[in-house]
């Protein structure tokens, strides 16, 4: 396997006195889709927040492209090539679709050829191009997710952290969104994804990571995780130890 683009070492942290991450370890090879699965409360979203500098870590280290990026500011992380698409609706409803995308370039400063990047982003999403002058609030749920992805691509990130992209989308839109993620991977972008919809997510993934109680339980080829009988068990509520016993 090639040198990982992202590695997290022994992350410990949480909210207030509550510890969510309990020594989380994993690494992600470049130009892959890696999906993190695990039961509710496993710390999946919290890992993303930790990577993106939104959670003060008590312990641990995050390396990205050979560099220590632990607790960097969001702007610094964006400029290093990481972007984050959180769960839920993350658009600016009263700005136009085009302005929403344009805001993705804010962190870059002057050097960026913004109009060209916006055009490139709109090329990937024909639906957004058709509606680029409309208020973003008029988009459908799936289009709003596309808008968030388009916005995150403006800085040409090397790593996209995407949390539950399929939530609330129709099966067709989920398929479209996953196709976009696959095409990004084929262009060399690394995708790290959290998905409740574990089966379909693992089907398009190269690697799967199973997280439980803030610890990494398993890192393996996505297909193997998909076929692992213990995984179904885990999602039905039982812990891995119980099913193994």
């Amino acid at each position: 396997m090639s040198e990982p683009i992202l590695s997290v070492h022994n992350l410990v942290g949480g909210y207030g006195k509550m510890t969510i991450l309990n020594g989380t370890n994993f690494s992600v090879p470049p130009a892959t889709i890696t999906t993190i699965i695990g039961p509710n409360g496993a710390g999946k979203s919290t890992v993303f927040k930790a990577i993106f500098g939104l959670l003060r870590l008590r312990e641990g280290k995050i390396s990205f492209a050979g560099r220590d990026v632990t607790n960097l500011s969001q702007r610094a992380l964006l400029n290093a090539g990481i972007c984050y698409v959180p769960q839920g609706r993350n658009i600016f409803p009263e700005l136009s679709v085009r302005s929403n995308i344009e805001l993705g370039g804010v962190a870059a400063g002057k050097g960026l050829d913004l109009p060209a990047r916006i055009e490139a982003a709109l090329d990937l999403f024909p639906a957004l191009r058709r509606k680029s002058a409309q208020q973003a609030s008029t988009l459908s749920g799936g289009e709003q997710k596309q808008l968030e992805i388009a916005r995150s691509l403006l800085l040409e990130p090397k790593l996209v952290l995407i949390d539950e992209p399929s939530i609330g989308l129709s099966p067709l839109m989920v398929q479209q969104t996953f196709d976009i993620l696959k095409s990004l991977r084929d262009r060399g972008v690394t995708i790290l994804m959290i998905e409740q919809n574990a089966r379909s997510a693992l089907e398009i993934s190269d690697i799967g990571i199973v997280l439980e109680l803030g610890q990494t339980r398993m890192v393996d080829d996505a297909k193997r995780i998909l076929n692992d009988p213990r995984i179904g068990q885990l999602f039905l509520g039982g812990a891995m130890e119980e099913s193994a016993a």
């Binding site: 969001q74 702007r75 964006l78 984050y84 959180p86 993350n90 600016f92 009263e94 700005l95 805001l103």
Partner: peptide, 13 residues
């Protein structure tokens, strides 16, 4: 952006 959704505004820089 900062007014409509400060959390997301921060995330995009």
């Amino acid at each position: 952006a900062a007014a409509q959704n400060p959390t997301v505004a921060r995330i995009i820089g």
